[in-house]
Design a protein around this nucleic acid. Structure first.
Ligand SMILES: [Mn+2]
Ligand SMILES: [Mn+2]
Ligand SMILES: [Zn+2]
Ligand SMILES: [Zn+2]
Lengths: 140, 140
DNA sequence: TAGTATTTGCGATAGACTTGCGTTAGTATA
DNA sequence: TATACTAACGCAAGTCTATCGCAAATACTA
């Protein structure tokens, strides 16, 4: 949860110029608990009266990802989502009813991964794991 | 691996009319080791001289999925893939070099899933797990 | 404050996928 | 086997996500 000034520094550190749209989007990422899609970013900028073409928003999030500020993920949708890379690789619980997306920080599949890697002679560089179901709220 | 006649029965059982394109695509699914994207299905039909508009192929695979014959999956691409639902839920090894996709039949994450479910009070209905890396062939 | 490289806006473009509508063709039943 | 009903199809247009080329704007640096 960084403020406007910190977001500027973050951009500078990544060798990205601190434009209004980029600063606002870094703030959005810092304050979001869920991974964001591009449409959400566009809507957010509009609410803050920051004009930004949608091609620009796609370019911004690509630049963020390329510089290692964000990570691109995908959750069985026909679009990508993005979240802060600094929060580390982790997994997600996705509610099929309300769409809520929750982080799972602890990964317990290392042993399984090692076993598969050996058995299949496959060098595993990364993995994606998501659980789909019904969240606590939506069970009532 | 079913023949043409069996594929017809499968379609009838699912209350789907057995058109040439549907029969051919069921055969393709039965004989494929990897999940298929729609373009692959279109190419296959062309090779067999079965005319099918691409809207039709999308409608076919949606019908298959809706009737439970196939399952829609997605492997961090901007498109969906489909595989036979009868083979059961399983996971995949995806080679970042050659694109090869291999099935992993044994799932060893049940304990982790139960733990998460309890901790987050989340009813888990399904999960997706994929490993990305370099296959045996591409390591040389 | 001027110079320059980076970033943006705009419009065109691409690819995956959907939809409306009139026609075709599987299937049931006689 | 002929008939009728409805599912399925072809075609064309449209939607949605994402990219690209180019000229204009703007953030940084000196
Ligand atoms: Mn997350
Ligand atoms: Mn598979
Ligand atoms: Zn929910
Ligand atoms: Zn490979």
């Amino acid at each position: 949860m960084l403020n406007k000034h910190d977001c500027k520094s973050e951009l500078n550190d990544a060798q990205l110029r601190a434009t209004p749209a980029r600063i606002a989007l870094m703030e959005l990422f810092e304050n979001s608990l869920e991974p964001l899609d591009v449409q959400t970013m566009i809507d957010y900028l509009q609410k803050r009266n920051i004009t930004a073409d949608n091609a620009t928003v796609f370019r911004i999030v690509n630049a963020f990802t390329q510089k290692g500020l964000t990570r691109q993920i995908q959750l069985h949708e026909n679009k990508f989502r993005y979240e802060l890379a600094a929060r580390g690789e982790h997994h997600h619980l996705i509610c099929n009813v309300c769409g809520k997306i929750e982080d799972i920080s602890d990964c317990k599949i290392e042993d399984f991964q090692d076993e598969i890697s050996k058995k299949k002679k496959f060098v595993i560089k990364s993995h994606a794991l998501e659980f789909y179901g019904t969240c606590n709220n939506c069970q009532k």
